[in-house]
């Protein structure tokens, strides 16, 4: 079990934990943070692969992920604030207006 495998396993674990968090937590803000955690897991895997392959493509992708994450949070937080204003709660179970 070498360094690369450990790091990739960590990346998978972070991604899985983030996914679990999205599914099991009620709080919208916590869910958002779990998504950030998933992005971090992906970033870690990218850096690991880049390191292993001695290539800078992975690093470029990581940079792009940073940008996406920043853009995402910049829109997500105002949306959450709006949601809370309309329903007075952060509990995701209350938000089921689009039920089929």
């Amino acid at each position: 079990m070498d360094k690369t495998q450990v790091l990739l396993a960590l990346a998978v674990a972070l991604f899985a934990l983030g996914m679990i968090g999205v599914v099991v937590r009620r709080n919208v803000l916590v869910m958002l943070m779990c998504m950030e955690l998933m992005l971090n897991g992906v970033n870690l895997s990218l850096v690991t692969f880049a390191h292993q392959a001695a290539s800078n493509v992975g690093a470029v992708l990581v940079f792009l992920v940073f940008v996406v994450a920043a853009a995402e949070i910049a829109i997500a937080i105002p949306i959450v604030l709006l949601l809370v204003r309309s329903k007075r709660t952060l509990d995701l179970a209350s938000y089921s207006d689009l039920k089929g």
Partner: peptide, 25 residues
């Protein structure tokens, strides 16, 4: 940047929200 933003958002919102007590879906 990101997390500071997040922390502000948390501080802005009501701590007595039921979502704070009942953790899990």
């Amino acid at each position: 940047a990101v997390m500071v933003f997040m922390v502000y958002a948390i501080m802005l919102l009501d701590v007595r929200d039921p979502a704070y007590q009942r953790r899990y879906s």
